[in-house]
């Protein structure tokens, strides 16, 4: 059965696409993995069948509209939070777009994610509510759960623009077994010159790796891994030993295992030009037995856009809950969900 390997190859090496490519399957897979806009940029300028070129031009235009809307959302958050004087760090897709990074090219951007100091959380919440954001769900259980255990406020949505904002005070839930150093991430953030900032290049990769493996069931993982590939390539242009800085940054946040895994996978799947190190930090790119399972999961998508490999998927779902919450808490969480039907 087809999997998304053809998509990973097309992204990594667009020139390798054969004339008899199954374009329908490739486009459908890319759409399902939220990577159509990215693929469209990667193939821009290559000789393509006319219908393919037209469809991809549409995808580029759609991504450009999405990029504008995402940046505007960041600007409106900036205006609402400027009077507080606290640092506001953009995360994920919006950050890549605001910083003009290659990971943003054609990328679909969903909610606005920002990181603020934990001490400013109440003030940020009040300022956003005053500027037209509203709680998405008024459910008391979910709310208490979020506030007690999550790394973010319950999601807010803007009443006119219908866009969500996630306000984080650290990059992993408080229930996760590792505790990233949020203060260090904030301190190392790079100012954009308009009052907003983004994580350091190393911090972005560590956050993306944490997000990919520790904070989710790998849904949408191929796109997150592509982000990491792009961020690494840009960092390596300036510094051939950039991967070393990334590993050192990861160690500060107890995320070295997740980050090393991300580097191995992006090297294996996208051919990212990183190399192994033994000194001063250790990075071994030699594939490990479990890497194959991750690759299978990340590529579990067929040419009809259907999720495949249900057993691999389920294993990752259980694992993701396990990682985020100590076991007894998981049982309580599920019980509360079941009882409420």
């Amino acid at each position: 059965m087809a999997d998304a390997l053809i998509l990973a190859r097309a992204l990594a090496d667009p020139q390798s696409l054969a004339l008899d490519t199954d374009w329908t399957g490739l486009v459908t897979m890319a759409r399902a993995e939220q990577l159509l806009g990215t693929l469209a940029w990667r193939l821009d300028g290559l000789p393509l069948p006319e219908d393919v070129a037209v469809l991809l031009a549409d995808a580029r235009a759609a991504a450009e509209n999405g990029r504008r809307a995402a940046l505007w959302e960041a600007e409106m958050a900036r205006r609402a939070l400027a009077p507080l004087g606290c640092p506001v760090v953009l995360l994920k897709g919006t950050a890549f777009a605001a910083a003009g990074l290659s990971a943003a090219r054609g990328r679909s951007i969903g909610d606005l994610d920002i990181l603020v100091p934990r001490a400013s959380l109440d003030a940020v919440e009040a300022a956003l509510l005053a500027a037209g954001w509203e709680w998405v769900k008024p459910d008391p259980y979910d709310d208490a759960y979020y506030r007690r255990w999550m790394h973010e406020l319950p999601p807010l949505i803007h009443r006119d623009r219908d866009r969500m904002i996630d306000v984080h005070h650290t990059i992993l839930p408080l229930t996760a077994r590792v505790t990233p150093d949020a203060a260090a991430l904030l301190a190392d953030a790079r100012a954009l010159g308009n009052g907003l900032s983004v994580l350091s290049p190393e911090g972005m990769i560590v956050h993306a790796a944490a997000h990919l493996f520790a904070d989710g069931d790998l849904a949408g993982g191929l796109r997150n891994l592509w982000d990491i590939h792009c961020l690494l390539c840009e960092g390596l242009e300036d510094d051939p030993d950039f991967a070393l800085s990334v590993i050192e940054e990861a160690a500060r946040h107890q995320l070295d295992a997740a980050t090393a895994l991300a580097l191995r996978l992006t090297h294996q799947m996208f051919g990212t030009p990183v190399k192994s190190y033994t000194h001063p930090a250790r990075l071994d790119l030699k594939p490990r037995p479990l890497d194959r399972l991750y690759r299978r999961r990340l590529l579990a998508r067929d040419d009809w856009g259907r999720p495949t490999r249900p057993f691999t998927r389920f294993a990752f779902y259980v694992r993701s809950h396990w990682l985020r919450m100590p076991p007894a808490m998981l049982a309580r969480h599920l019980w509360t969900k079941w009882r409420r039907g």
């Binding site: 329908t24 459908t28 399902a32 219908d51 856009g305 259907r306």
Partner: peptide, 28 residues
């Protein structure tokens, strides 16, 4: 030449292909 969109008419559960067949509407 190249479909713009893909539609999938899927069984809601594997056995629902035959027993009280029920179509889930899926696609891009």
């Amino acid at each position: 030449n190249l479909p713009d969109f893909t539609v999938r008419l899927e069984a809601t559960r594997p056995w629902r292909r035959w027993i009280r067949p029920s179509i889930a509407i899926a696609g891009d």
